[in-house]
Design a protein around this nucleic acid. Structure first.
Length: 271
DNA sequence: TTAATCACCTGAGGGC
DNA sequence: TGCCCTCAGGTGATTA
């Protein structure tokens, strides 16, 4: 499932191919994603050149001179850059055809993803304007995280997964970061010391950086733009490892449910 | 303002 | 083999 490292991997894969390239057609086979794809998207994009590709949180931003295309991969989405005549598979919902007969193909079995258009300043788009800082930027640090956590009673795991606090920390990396910081996932966010938030802040940055270097985490649904898997799964310490021995102490990894999300932790190493 | 819950969706896997 | 059920989960919207 695409989290921030997977989105970063996707962008690295498509950026060199589509930047400066011109769209000649957009084929929409299925409009019903998380929100309906705009009916007039082909008219908006035909003949337009891609100026840049960037990311905010897990949104991929493809900039044109007259606006920005927002792509979100949701739970199961992926993008591939292929020849336009490549055989269409089930759940290949949208093709962006380019001048050189190549095609950016959006595939999403669960249709939790999104393809939206804005002609306004994209940073003020309603989906982006209230987002927290990027976890790998300098403005995400222990002072910020500790300050935002005061008087918050929810669990620390829910806290770091809240995109208004920090973006891009999904379930996998929240579990891994808390394990590396030695913090129990159900502990109340407001009752954790600054010293422990320093560890957590560093863990989040390290886990995400490492995962980006490994090309993301392949579980059930993710592959990169070449259709190849990510390799971070091999480095997971707790996620999806319930009942297996902790890599530090050999105690079995436990699994609990928090807000309908699976949490994995070592009761011996995390407090 | 905060926290909890719901809704969206389909493939995988297990039980029978 | 086939059917049914449960689970997985990102995130905006809704409710309390």
């Amino acid at each position: 499932m695409p989290e921030l490292p997977e989105v970063e991997t996707t962008i690295s894969g498509i950026k060199p191919h589509i930047t400066g390239n011109t769209i000649t057609n957009v084929i929409i086979r299925e409009h019903r994603l998380r929100w309906p794809i705009p009916e007039n998207l082909p008219d908006i994009l035909k003949g337009q050149k891609v100026l840049s590709v960037s990311r905010r949180a897990k949104y991929i931003l493809i900039k044109f001179h007259h606006g920005t295309l927002l792509l979100h991969l949701g739970m199961s989405g992926s993008i591939r850059f292929i020849n336009k005549n490549f055989e269409v598979a089930k759940h290949d919902h949208v093709d962006f055809i380019f001048k050189n007969s190549k095609c950016l193909r959006f595939h999403d079995p669960r249709r939790f993803g999104a393809i939206l258009w804005t002609s306004e300043n994209v940073t003020q788009h309603k989906l982006l304007r209230n987002l927290g800082p990027e976890p790998l930027h300098n403005d995400f640090d222990v002072n910020y995280l500790y300050g935002r956590s005061r008087n918050r009673s929810l669990s620390v795991k829910q806290f770091i997964m809240d995109s208004k606090i920090v973006v891009g920390v999904g379930n996998i990396y929240a579990n891994e970061s808390l394990y590396l910081a030695g913090i129990h996932p159900v502990r109340s966010a407001g009752r954790i010391s600054k010293a422990r938030y320093l560890k957590l802040c560093n863990s989040i940055k390290n886990v995400l950086t490492d995962a980006i270097d490994q090309g993301g985490t392949t579980l059930r649904d993710f592959s990169n733009t070449d259709g190849k898997p990510g390799y971070f799964k091999q480095k997971l310490n707790v996620y999806d490892r319930s009942d297996l021995p902790c890599k530090k102490c050999n105690h079995p990894i436990k699994r609990i449910t928090q807000n309908n999300r699976s949490s994995y932790y070592c009761s011996h190493c995390q407090h």
